[in-house]
């Protein structure tokens, strides 16, 4: 259990470091591309490489935002729903989202495989699958986060249940 928790915290740290590095690399590559073009030596690969990092950064950041509860939702009900109804909605959401993510992972892997001949930006020998894989990996991370959210909600509910019993 402890080992699993350590592995997970290493994973999330790695994810954040990679996402940050990708974003900064995008900045540096695009900047370099602009300056090189100004000096009449356009480097066209800078744009290609930065859009590849863009895909990876997007999906890694999506997972970070999901873990930090920063994905926006619309609260239509306000405080009109009971705690129990709210929790039921949470579980329903986690279930639907997990199903969607399983689909995304499957489609992402399948796509990376069948389109492996597609070249990235027409560069011979560089497969677009390197980009496509970002959605499969991102989807897997998002799925892990969703499952952990559901598990911690379950644990909280169980604790709540026992403390209430204990009080009576």
């Amino acid at each position: 259990m402890v080992r699993a928790r350590t592995a997970y915290s290493v994973l999330t740290r790695l994810e954040a470091v990679l996402a940050g590095v990708f974003l900064m690399l995008m900045v540096l590559l695009i900047f370099t591309g602009g300056v090189a073009r100004m000096l009449h030596h356009p480097l066209n690969w800078t744009i290609d490489l930065s859009t590849c990092f863009f895909a990876w950064a997007c999906f890694l950041c999506a997972d970070i935002a999901w873990r930090r509860n920063a994905l926006m939702s619309i609260d239509v009900w306000g405080k009109h729903l009971s705690h129990r109804a709210n929790r039921a909605l949470d579980y329903l959401n986690y279930a639907v989202i997990s199903a969607f993510l399983v689909y995304l992972i499957y489609a992402g892997i399948w796509l990376s495989w069948v389109s492996r001949a597609r070249s990235f930006q027409g560069i011979p020998g560089v497969s677009y699958s390197w980009v496509t894989m970002s959605i499969a990996v991102g989807g897997a991370l998002l799925l892990l986060t969703t499952i952990l959210k559901a598990m911690s909600a379950l644990k909280e509910d169980r604790l709540r249940g026992t403390t209430r019993c204990g009080a009576v």
Binding site: V27, T51, C58, A107, L111, T132
Partner: peptide
């Protein structure tokens, strides 16, 4: 093809004009 939703989602991140969004957030 059932892969289209995943494919076009990835393509959005290859759209050069959307690159401005993360850059300005940074």
């Amino acid at each position: 093809p059932f892969t289209i939703p995943a494919q076009i989602t990835v393509s959005q991140t290859q759209n050069f004009s959307l690159l401005a969004v993360p850059l300005f957030i940074l």
